[in-house]
Write a protein that binds this DNA or RNA. Structure first.
Lengths: 108, 108
DNA sequence: ATATATACCTTGACATTCTGGGTATACGGG
DNA sequence: CCCGTATACCCAGAATGTCAAGGTATATAT
């Protein structure tokens, strides 16, 4: 029914992945998704910002206000040590689960 | 936080897949998942039965009371034509999305 | 008689996501 | 100088899906 473009549960992982290459602000994360996936994955801001808050509350990421190259104020997020561990955990969990599901879906 | 074993959004597809080989009742679907995935995917009954209701309400599956080989009354579900189309749609959507995500997660 | 497996179902809580807004500033074209 | 667009943040409310934790009932074997 809902044209949900995103697999629920993968947003956190994808954000962690985006930040694994260095600090980014929210808007830049959304842009990165679009470029990295040729628009196949679109992150709504109404999902993105709440996700950033809860991830910060859980200690996976830390934020700091700064200025972009466009001279705009922006909140930059970066991975914490815990966040890096979380990324690893979610990555391996994703690899496992998605392969199990793919296998089931290929059964005769 | 939650030890969520299931990727949200895939349950319907997996149920459709289970039924694609022939009619099954709810309990048998749960058993099938466990056997087919070596316990890697477990479907809680509190998720399964509501899922069956909404899928029937959407016309993807149809139900009929019958008797199992254990002589128990059970509600057997089978795919409708729409359900078969839905299975195809979700299968291809899954293939696409999971490959996009996997690709992103493998980026340097 | 009773334990176990089979089979169905419900309620309430919870987390995640989307829709559809809103605010403010930098910059370029006219 | 004015205005449109892109940049950048945010929120409230609703919908949805899932789970936890129960409950009922019957067949079968011990």
């Amino acid at each position: 029914m809902t044209k949900n473009e995103l697999l629920q549960g993968t947003l956190d992982m994808l954000i962690l992945k985006a930040l694994s290459r260095g600090p980014l602000h929210g808007y830049a994360i959304a842009r990165w998704f679009e470029r990295a996936t040729d628009d196949a994955l679109r992150v709504e801001e109404g999902s993105l910002y709440p996700a950033l808050y809860r991830m910060e509350a859980r200690g996976w990421i830390a934020s700091k206000w700064g200025v972009t190259d466009r001279k705009r104020n922006a909140k930059f997020y970066e991975l914490t040590k815990i966040g890096r561990q979380q990324l690893e955990a979610e990555t391996s969990s994703w690899a496992h689960l998605s392969s199990v599901i793919s296998r089931v879906m290929q059964m005769a």
